[in-house]
Design a protein around this nucleic acid. Structure first.
Length: 223
DNA sequence: TCATTAAATTGTT
DNA sequence: AACAATTTAATGA
């Protein structure tokens, strides 16, 4: 992995020593995952910590009746799977590419080594876990308190969390059906919500993509 | 490069 | 949920 690649733009890389960065570049593998392909599957023994370099992934599960639930969309700059690295258990979810995506695979041994040797890496992980916990708590609150349009607004804003996903472009390539999965809505309802948000100039929707026009506005919508 | 066709996505009932 | 309309991507002249 060459120097100054997209990889080096990640916040946790900046805090490492040059030697640590070298080892990460040496050990990490970047794979092109085509749309619809799995990055990892539920039940596997997790061997890697994953990062999204480009594209978009979803963390998802399918119930026995075939209903799909998406827990989280992961845009470029996002890293996930630290829970599986810290605990010894099978991966509890599927990860699928929503678009052709470049995905980084950091081996468990390297992850553990960083954990043992880099204070700043630990700080990054603690912050990330804290951010995610806050998001999931908020998600449960919204689920109970907010109307449907507001849920969609929150979910979109959440995909642009500047701490978890820094330096992202404001255009999200995602179908309205996937927005529905992400929000726990039907495609039709997601479509209506997106139109409503477009009406008030918070987003712009076009074929297969959504542009964020007003992130603070999205966060506060319906409150 | 342009026209035709297929596939994906969106709109409507 | 099913169907129609629209947009994009792929194919071949």
């Amino acid at each position: 992995m060459p120097e100054n690649s997209l990889l080096d733009k990640n916040a946790w890389m900046l805090g490492l020593t040059p030697e640590q960065r070298d080892r990460v570049r040496r050990d990490i593998v970047i794979k092109l995952v085509r749309q619809g392909e799995y990055v990892c599957r539920k039940g596997e023994a997790p061997a890697f910590w994953h990062g999204v370099i480009s594209g978009l992934l979803k963390i998802t599960n399918v119930s026995m009746s075939g209903k799909e639930v998406t827990f989280l969309g992961v845009p470029p700059g996002g890293w996930f799977g630290e829970g599986s690295m810290l605990k010894e258990h099978p991966r509890p979810y599927d990860v699928v590419a929503l678009r052709d995506s470049e995905v980084a695979y950091l081996p468990r041994a390297t992850f553990t080594w960083l954990l043992d040797n880099s204070i700043s890496f630990n700080r990054f992980l603690v912050n990330q876990l804290n951010e995610r916990l806050g998001q999931f708590i908020a998600a449960i609150e919204y689920e109970r308190l907010l109307d449907t349009d507001a849920k969609v607004a929150k979910t979109l804003a959440w995909m642009f969390n500047p701490y978890l996903y820094p330096g992202q472009s404001s255009i999200l390539a995602i179908s309205q059906e996937e927005v529905g999965h992400l929000c726990g809505l039907s495609r039709q309802r997601a479509n209506m919500a997106l139109k409503a948000l477009e009406q008030v100039n918070l987003i712009r929707v076009s074929y297969g993509e959504i542009e964020i026009l007003d992130l603070p506005g999205l966060k506060n919508f319906g409150l």
